[in-house]
Amino acid sequence: MNIFTYLLENPDYILEKTFQHIYIFLISWSFAVITGIISGIFITREKNKKIGRIILVIIGITQSVPSIAVIALFFLFMGIGFITAAFALFLYSLVPIVFNTASGLISVDGNVKEAALGMGMTKKDILFKIEIPMAMPSVFSGIRNSAVINIATATVAATIGAGGLGVIIFTGLSHFNASMIFAGAVPVSFLALSIDLILGFLEKKFTSEGLKISEEG
């Protein structure tokens, strides 16, 4: 028996688990992207500046909490099930998106915003034509980070009912079956890599050339 045995003998089962994995990832992550970007925008608006700063500090701290702790915490309060797992994943992948969106928006040069205001742009114009396009690289780095973290953490979330490739890995672990662990881990890495590639492509498409040029060039 070699490391590929399980992979080669159970393609249908692995494919099924892969789709489950993609399913929970897409649900939890896409909600996180939408909620994350909107919250990032919200907490950086002038009128929400005070709460925004507090939220950012809290989020900064949460970023250092290990995923396993988050999963455990949700298990304690919500029990086992798909909803618990999806909710935990949603919250955990929300953090980098909010953080990066907010810091991208905050770091837009005040002079640039002032010029925009002075030219007669409305607050809405400034948000959509200046701030968001300029924060794009940072927003995307949040989204990409979050996607990779989500896919990895979804593996752990199998322990509380997420389903997906984590199920294969954990079964393999409990049976000391290296081939089975491998059969779960390979698609996970493959998934993470492909999602990151796709997002990398989108990032290129949605980021202005002008922001990519280095100062020296």
Binding site: V112, A115, G118
Partner: peptide, 14 residues
């Protein structure tokens, strides 16, 4: 027309 002290061109626009 307003030219601010730091020019303030939009870096993401040509």
């Amino acid at each position: 027309g307003y030219v601010i002290q730091e020019i303030g061109l939009f870096p993401h626009m040509n």
